[in-house]
Design a protein around this nucleic acid. Sequence first.
RNA 1: GCCCCCAUCGUCUAGAGGCCUAGGACGCCACCCUUUCAAGGUGGAGACCACCGGUUCGAAUCCGGUUGGGGGCACCA
Length: 493
Amino acid sequence: MPRVRIAPSPTGPLHIGTARTALFNYLFARHTGGTFVLRLEDTDVARSTLAFEEDILAGLDWLRIAWDEGPDSAGGADRGPYAPYHQLQRIERHRAAAANLLARDLAYPCYCTPEELEADREAQAAAHEPPRYVGRCANLTPAERAAREAEGRRGALRFRVPPGVVAFDDLVRGRIEIDTANIGGDFVIVRSDGTPLYHFAVVVDDADMAMSHIIRGEDHISNTPKHILLFRALGHAVPAFAHLPLILNPDRTKMSKRKSQTAISDYIAQGFVQEALVNFLALLGWSTGTEEEILTLDEIAARFDLDHVQKGGAVFDRERLEWLNGQWIRRLEPDDLIDRLEPFLQRELDAGRIDRLPGREELRALLPIIQERLPRLDAIGDLTGFLWVDRLEPDPTTIVPKRWDGATTREALAEARATIAGSASPVTFEADELEPPLRALAEARGWKAGDLFMAIRVAVTGRTATPPLFDTLVALGRDRTLGRLDRAIALLS
RNA sequence: GCCCCCAUCGUCUAGAGGCCUAGGACGCCACCCUUUCAAGGUGGAGACCACCGGUUCGAAUCCGGUUGGGGGCACCA
């Protein structure tokens, strides 16, 4: 059975690109009946934090990308037969592997100083040569090493890169061959402080955890020969590789925090729903091969295959995400939608933009007229906020419809108020009863119904774009409707 | 600079030699519906399949080159 993994490092919040890679690994595991593993690459102690680890787990959890093995919770216990799944806790495994390579002279200690290495790079740049380690410490005698150690210098460990071509059959790109002469010379696998570097730790852990497929971003293609060389040196079977196309900024460079919104948590905060984000991410670089495009996570897993993974990078098209989000919001069951809306209403309350929280039943009654008007959950405030505020302060100039003047508007609102007050009794204040008499009023006075309705709309909601007017009046209730009309009339005087 | 990867409407993509005078979706435009805004419906503009040369009876699909774009070259991950 396939074993795949996502190995994020907790040096930042869950990134869109990491989430997409996690999703593809998850989908591959679900489709093939394999196992999906989550491993935290926290060896960069200086930059890793528990808060980021929490963000990553929470984000994957929110996306419903469930891992079969890995950390149960941030900083908590690990679950699975290959625990621990925190890379830092596997340090002894890395040390043992490093000692093994050193003992077999497949790796050697390097005492070059940062200054020496920097000078090498500068000389190479000046000579228009690619940067590579020159091998200064590659053939030190035991005596020379001892001398350096005696000076108190601590060596980093470098892997001896053998000459030749490393080839692999990428599951999405086909055969790729890279001459080891082009990978930069012998590379460091253990820092002088004894901690392992990414390229080394990742291979030791992937080997230990019996990974069968490595599905990751295209930016790792050039690193693959290093990994393959290490798998071989360590005496492990080399897993299959599949390199996914990159997610791009609008200018087609690798998606970055600088140019795009990359944190999953920001998308959550903006009211994107899980279904939409997963659907969107799955379709970035992959397709069903058919014209289906609105799919649940399970439907996607059932159809997923590496054959339909695109080779070229994909621009993150936020407009399309927003459209998909609207599609999914419209498909949500009422209770579900209400549950998801509540935090956003709470946020409106906390920000002082509304004065009270609507009850579930109040919201439920509104759903038929607002569900299709929500591109994102965070639009709930703009769409319905006027219903939950005690006092409205509409701008008098916006109450007056384009073709009308202040006096006409004032007169129209006064007559509309009288019509509403007279025609609709408190117990049957319903949309169907409100509309005919107001249309009749407009007709009788020679006003365009749309102008009258717009004046009422702004007077009562403060906005020019709202859910259907009469349903809105009903939601507001008779007393508040009349009160707001009075207030608007006063404002126009 | 060196190495590697990629190349179908603005964007996401279908397409695995004839079904393609290239299909769908987002976005855009128009119309319909309509009290505003949405949603929905209908229609439209939009890609000489980057370019050049092969292979073939026939190429978006295969091969080579060119150009363009991207990624990688750390005691970061």
